[in-house]
Design a protein around this nucleic acid. Structure first.
Lengths: 301, 301
DNA sequence: GTCGACTCGGGTAATTCGGGTC
DNA sequence: AATGTCCGAATTACCCGAGTCG
């Protein structure tokens, strides 16, 4: 798949005429790059952003590198979670992809797709597992499929260039890669330069990362805690380090019960991807007003 | 480190055709140096100036960037491991992707790319970590980048339709997703319908998977063993189960020492991806001659 | 000196430009 | 007001045999 598309390709992809597309480009609805001879070239990510923001139909998704189906029922979020759960458990990767990509192309915010479709589907699978209706390997295999879809989704985002760096990780012993990967995509969606360090990162190494990279935000997805008191101690130490570099610490995840949260220090707790998105937006606005270089809090800018 | 680029390199870098670039050179939009034989050579800074002036999107920044790899070097496998290691540690995802995809598009077998570039790069990173020249989070972050590249590579493969199913997994406690993901791609490359179950799968669940799916092959990548005797017992029990459904059991991974291997029963041990590829090819040929439906071993077909 | 990959020049077909009109 | 179609001129992409590079 090529990265730069001609107006004709994009026009075919969304089923519009070539000159409409040219007009939209000239109106600034689509940002284009130009060849030396003055021909317009449109980056795929830009084309995707356009169809998502303008609720445009996609006739030929493969041109945009998305093998979706674009049937009407795929555009509503209701029922998708159930369909996704069965598609995952029957190992039907293409169907899974189509469900997610259809919603994405229809302009559904990624945070909502994650909260209301993917998370729900995995909750369903988790319950089936508890009732012995699904095996562990089926759940893990579903995670693999979902992870591949998330990576593909990520590759369709416009690369971040805000300079607002956020670091993400799961704590040592926590191997649930899905939530933290979803967070990365959500943060990138709202303009953060989110860098996922990975799963099972020791607190000491996170502290090193903070000191070396000096991000504006650190987000941790906590799905599993092996040693509660060690976790609380390690986390609060990490929060100290983060405070020194003025790094916001955001936490989330199903392992964080009210009791545990009561003993933690953090900048924000997010129950859902939507919460994370909203907090990230707010923090971003704040950070853009504040000075970016010195990181020392000044009164005004 | 040369600072002269060929027209083809620049054309690839900015996503234009070679002949367009030649035209632009002849029009004087790009000043070129000529070789004795009359071939155009473009200085890097000249290419960068051209990109900036025309607001051109840079598709492959690494070509114009620091490394200035010339095509011949980029397509040969020598030196790629070192370049990949530095690109991974500097978090330069685009460069990493370019290194791997250049080799892939040049027709290098994936098994060789994995053995001689990716594996070597991670060995380098691992050594740096031991010498305290790299932190854990850098290694994990590199794994994330590599995993995304592997997934992208996988999405470029033609979907398997041979009906020859292979299952892959890592054992409980083993979180190294990279080797097992590479194996999946290698197996798919040689026509197997390889299904990666995931990381850290208990032996019991693998046994269930074998009985329910009845694959022709089960491959396990063993990078880490927490409890040696439990592993040996569990593995040999799994081999029993696999024998009943006539499933070949293939193992590999750096945790399998000669001593441990001596106490295991398996169909094949593969040191490298290349070995795995060759074994998979052989087994496939054999399986295609043998009856596929009944799975009962008959004398001839 | 051989060799494979690359580049040259130039020709041709297809696409895109901008603008005017429906 | 917005879209789709048509136009001549300009631009780009693809192709090929001969020569060059490393």
């Amino acid at each position: 798949m090529q990265h730069l598309l001609s107006p004709k390709q994009v026009a075919n992809a969304i089923g519009a005429s070539e000159s409409s597309l040219k007009r939209w480009c000239d109106q600034g609805l689509l940002t284009t790059v130009k060849t030396a001879g003055g021909h317009r070239r449109i980056p795929v990510q830009e084309a995707l952003r356009f169809v998502r923001e303008h609720n445009h139909a996609v006739v030929e998704p493969h041109i945009l590198g998305m093998s979706a189906t674009d049937d009407r029922k795929g555009r509503r979020i209701e029922g998708c979670a159930e369909r996704l759960a069965t598609a995952l458990l029957t190992n039907n990767e293409q169907a899974c992809q189509a469900i997610v990509f259809d919603l994405f192309l229809a302009g559904q915010p990624v945070s909502q797709i994650f909260d209301e479709v993917i998370a729900v589907a995995f909750r369903t699978i988790g319950e089936k597992w508890k009732c012995h209706e699904a095996d562990i390997y089926e759940e893990r295999c579903s995670c693999q499929i979902a992870l591949r879809i998330l990576h593909e989704l990520r590759s369709k985002q416009t690369p971040p260039n805000s300079g607002l760096v956020a670091l993400g990780a799961t704590i040592e012993g926590d191997q649930y890669a899905l939530p933290v990967t979803m967070s990365e995509i959500v943060l990138r969606e709202v303009g953060w330069d989110a860098r996922l360090l990975g799963s099972s990162i020791p607190f000491d190494s996170m502290a090193n990362a903070i000191q070396q990279i000096e991000p504006r935000m650190l987000w941790l997805s906590i799905s599993f805690i092996s040693d509660e008191s060690a976790f609380i101690a390690g986390f609060n130490r990490l929060f100290e380090t983060a405070s020194k570099t003025n790094t916001a610490v955001v936490v989330g995840g199903r392992a964080l019960t009210t009791e545990i949260r009561a003993r933690l220090h953090y900048s924000a707790f997010c129950d859902t991807m939507r919460h994370l998105e909203e907090f990230a937006k707010t923090l971003r606005r704040q950070a853009e007003i504040a000075p970016t270089k010195t990181r020392k809090p000044r009164k005004n800018a």
